[in-house]
Nucleic acid binder design. Sequence first.
DNA 1: TTACATGCAAACCCTTTGCAATCGT
DNA 2: ACGATTGCAAAGGGTTTGCATGTAA
Lengths: 155, 155
Amino acid sequence: MIDKKALAEQAKIEFEAYLKIKGLRKTAERFSIIDEFFALEEHVDVESFYLMMRNRNYSISRATIYNTLDLLVECGLAVKHQFREKQALYEQALTYKHHDHLVCNTCGKIKEFSDERIEAIKRTIGKELGSNIRRHALVFYGDCTIENCENKPGR
Amino acid sequence: MIDKKALAEQAKIEFEAYLKIKGLRKTAERFSIIDEFFALEEHVDVESFYLMMRNRNYSISRATIYNTLDLLVECGLAVKHQFREKQALYEQALTYKHHDHLVCNTCGKIKEFSDERIEAIKRTIGKELGSNIRRHALVFYGDCTIENCENKPGR
DNA sequence: TTACATGCAAACCCTTTGCAATCGT
DNA sequence: ACGATTGCAAAGGGTTTGCATGTAA
């Protein structure tokens, strides 16, 4: 189990460096977002995150959250996903190692996995189609086969 | 080169069968959408398709296009993609063989590819995470390495 | 001091919905 | 005739933008 506090502190250090390079300001809002974002256990959408922060008595606006999360993505501290059609989900990426996602058709939960073979496919296809492939997004959608899965709806 | 007309005719036959099963009506609009949709060379978004049809003097509404494209997806004649955040893209799928996509960072064009190795990854991960994986979405994003690529912007 | 940031609400974009008018069956 | 389908425009939901106010540097 990783220490969330330590994670947030490291994120702040990296974020400060990024702000400095870009000539952006260190504002209280940005740092409070980092505190809360790196304490999360899961991917989060902006609206939930906004409501959560309001519930915890931060006075912060949606606009600032959008702005800050985008900055975190820019500097590599977060990753933005588009699993469903509407809302984007943000994921912390401090100790980021690329991984892909399995979305459960049964309960909607998202699991992570990583398989090196995808890199080989990228090399083959990149060569074949004339592209220097920089990144990929791979999502599996499947039915849960785990008996008594704790995430099963209606339990 | 596949004969577009023949494609549309085959699609109509399959679509009629689907409508019959579902007790839905055969309307002129639905068939005109099939005519135009199966004449397309590329993935299309709803708004472009709507404008194209209006330009060709069909009197048709966006609502009907959304409705009909969704029916086509339901009966397997089309596939809906969500490559970017906003609009969905629809692709004809009459002679559908699953394939994945490479999005060009340089010109935005979408190329198709297929690599069997992804199936092996699905089996491994499905077993590992307890999921019967039904489908996947794999998108590569890369920089064009083709000299004098005809799609290069600013040519 | 002076740009950059913020909060708020309005605007935006794509998609969905409500409803009266139409049209298959 | 009946109910599904249409066109239109309005509503919806997530995200972005404009602007006056606030604030880090």
